[in-house]
């Protein structure tokens, strides 16, 4: 076990020495990987931020039933509760709605200028069936009730946003897969060149009794380190990019009375990006070694 560990330590040291001896090439390779990885990582961060914003609002379909001033609330409530298509019901009085509006970001100033409360009493209905057709049928039935001024299906925009986010995630996954393939190819080629330049050393080592594992190990570490360095660089690029973007976002958010800012990836996700990059480096090295060190 001690020998095995010592050999791994030796292989790691040899890989680090090789990388240090070719500083410029190492940096350029890491930069290529870093820039390529920063694109999907950046997209992921932006999507996570967008999702964060969207999650402040409900994605559960609901129907708002705005009442006329003369509407008979108790009678209407009884009819709604009796309807099997209604899973839950909540009454929001016009005063309560105004109070909620007052504390909403960016609207306090607007509400303060109002001379009287323009908002109607509202029933917020959670339908038993959230499907598009059932929702529309329910909305139509609610519109026909006496005392109802307006019916609004509130989930539509949220559903559209969620659908857009899903498309974004799919596009990101495709981009990440494409760039991951590119990164594997970059590492594959780097390791191939390393194998070619060390062909003599490899041949002599084998003649003197080096096992395949001993010969291959430093190349695996080389790929792993190169991938990891690229991953760390990608995170640095992402952090810098978000910092620059936030200069503009801060002003925009302030104009809406919000303190919203684009957040960096959570710790676990950042670690996953670095680990994924290291894994890609290892895969590239593995493929190269399998091809050229047979």
């Amino acid at each position: 076990m001690r020998t095995w560990l010592r050999q791994h330590r030796g292989a790691l040291a040899r890989a680090v020495r090789k990388l240090a001896a070719q500083r410029a090439a190492t940096l350029l390779n890491a930069l290529v990987i870093g820039v390529a990885l920063s694109l999907p990582a950046g997209g992921y961060a932006l999507l996570a931020n967008l999702q964060g914003v969207a999650q402040r609002f409900t994605f559960e379909p609901q129907v708002s039933v705005f009442l006329k001033p003369e509407a008979k609330r108790a009678e209407l409530e009884a009819r709604l509760r009796a309807d099997r298509r209604v899973a839950a019901l909540r009454f929001v009085s016009r005063d309560q709605a105004l109070a909620e509006l007052r504390v909403a970001e960016g609207l306090a100033d607007v509400v303060a200028t109002l001379e009287r409360n323009p908002l109607p009493d509202t029933f917020v209905v959670r339908p038993a069936d959230g499907g598009g057709a059932a929702l529309e049928a329910l909305a139509g039935a609610l519109r026909a009730l006496p005392g109802v001024a307006h019916v609004q299906v509130d989930s539509a925009w949220a559903e559209r946003l969620a659908a857009l986010a899903r498309i974004g995630r799919l596009a990101l996954a495709a981009l990440a897969a494409l760039l991951a393939t590119g990164l594997v190819a970059v590492t594959f080629n780097t390791i191939r060149l390393q194998i070619l330049t060390q062909r003599e050393e490899i041949e002599v080592s084998r003649l003197l009794g080096a096992t395949d594992a001993f010969v291959r190990r430093p190349f695996f570490y080389l790929g792993l380190i190169q991938g990891l360095a690229g991953g760390v660089l990608a995170l640095a690029i992402l952090w810098g990019g978000l910092w620059v973007l936030n200069l503009g976002v801060r002003d925009l958010a302030r104009a809406y009375g919000s303190s919203f800012q684009l957040a960096f990836l959570p710790g676990g996700d950042a670690l996953a990006v670095a680990a994924f990059a290291a894994l890609l480096g290892w895969v590239g090295a593995f493929l190269s070694v399998s091809r050229y060190l047979r």
């Binding site: 003599e200 002599v204 003197l208 009794g209």
Partner: peptide, 19 residues
């Protein structure tokens, strides 16, 4: 079959690195 990118000492050390 010597390695010219390392010292005399390291050339002789090579077979012991596997052991």
């Amino acid at each position: 079959k010597l390695l010219y990118d390392r010292s005399v000492f390291d050339n002789v050390m090579l077979p012991l690195a596997f052991g």
